[in-house]
Amino acid sequence: MWPDRRLIDLFKTEFPIVLAPIAGAMDAKLAIAAAKGGALGSLPCAMLSAEKAREQVNIIRQHVSAPINMNFFSHKPRELSAEAEARWKQRLASYYAEYGLDPATPIAAANRAPFDAAFCEVVEELRPEVVSFHFGLPEPKLLQRVKATGAVVMSSATIVKEAIWLEENGADVVIAQGAEAGGHRGMFLTENVAEQPGTFALVPQVVDAVKVPVIAAGGIADGRGIAAAFALGASGVQIGSAYLRCPESTVSPAARLALARAGDDTTVITNVVTGRPARGVPNRVMREIGPISPDAPAFPHAATPLGPLKAAAEKQGKVDFTNLFAGQAIALGREVPAAELTRDLAKSALARLKALSG
């Protein structure tokens, strides 16, 4: 009944729906629930060690017989200069004083590592059915090893040029990430956030530019959005924000409340949280320092000194420094189990598509 079955046949899932890998807001539990509902369950691995990623995949395998998508970052690490570090710490000094924290105390570096040989060995060992990347693709030798496992490879494009590059460099599927999408922008051939197209403008142009299946992402949180994506030529959708309030997510009670109160005009693009452009519901530090600040050091170094502040504030039930990444359709999210949500999304989308074709 789906007008394009390429992703269903490629992934071997019931529905052409991908649970977005929402780093910091989910673990194996949400991936399992979404997979039970018929979606492709994703595991965000960029903030995990190789050992933790292996553990999480094994948990998923124990609970569901379904394909798994392991997601990784493929950015090029940038060094943090002493000058940039000092400037950022000075910018945060008043918050440290407010919470009684010593800025001189050593802090563990933010763990957002790019895909490397150690992660590649985990992929070769676990053989996930799908491996996805953000910020481009890993170096060719590593990518060849991933593809040799038989995994379907996909990555995000925020402009047509990135989509063409991904296809030419080995991606089997392109995720067209519109400006509405929550979380980090997948930009890797551009740094101009102001020129990022929305989903409705981006998807049909990417579909016209590449031959591989295209997944629409950004602003899609119900059956209407899914039907619209297919009308634009997409073979499937990737959905994240709609799942944030599901009981299986790891979102804290305070953060859930902030997300529940968010509206269509709430989210903004910020570089304050990690040093790289990302969309989310503003927290205190985003409002007072950003949302875009020239003082924020390069990704992921901006996140390191925010760690102690986040922990201190959360002990008081506050989300002043907590990552609240979400897309513009966050208000369409519901507090229902992920499997039920997935089935409802598919059912509603099919009804819409039937009505459009009838």
Rank of each mutant, 00 (worst) to 15 (best):
R352I: 00
E79L: 08
A260Q: 14
K141N: 14
R6Y: 06
R78W: 07
T342V: 12
W2K: 04
R91N: 04
P305A: 09
I292E: 15
A258K: 15
R54L: 12
P67N: 10
D222L: 15
L324T: 07
A201G: 00
L7D: 02
V210P: 11
T266W: 02
R5T: 15
A33M: 01
S241L: 10
A298C: 08
D295N: 13
I164G: 02
L126P: 04
V281T: 12
C120P: 03
P16I: 05
R5C: 07
E85D: 15
A326P: 03
A227F: 05
A221R: 08
L306H: 11
E125C: 09
P308T: 09
C45Q: 01
V57Q: 10
P3Y: 11
K161S: 14
T199C: 04
A109C: 05
R276E: 04
F133H: 05
V273A: 09
L126F: 07
L244W: 13
T267R: 12
C120S: 08
Q196N: 15
L137G: 09
L345F: 12
A216P: 07
K36L: 12
A351K: 12
S235M: 09
A231W: 02
Q316Y: 10
L143I: 03
N111F: 15
Q205C: 02
M47C: 06
I226G: 10
Y96M: 08
G183Q: 08
K147N: 02
I59Q: 15
K354Q: 15
A151S: 13
V130G: 08
C45G: 01
P77Y: 02
F188H: 13
R87F: 01
P300Y: 11
P138Q: 06
K315I: 03
L350N: 06
P21S: 07
E79K: 12
P77V: 00
A231Y: 00
E340I: 15
I8A: 07
E79Q: 11
P140D: 03
A331N: 00
G37A: 00
F299D: 05
F115M: 05
G307V: 04
I32N: 01
H134L: 04
L189A: 04
D4I: 09
G100P: 06
I330M: 14
F299R: 02
L232G: 14
A313W: 05
V285I: 15
I32K: 10
L137N: 03
F11D: 02
V193G: 13
L356S: 08
V131C: 02
W165R: 08
L126G: 13
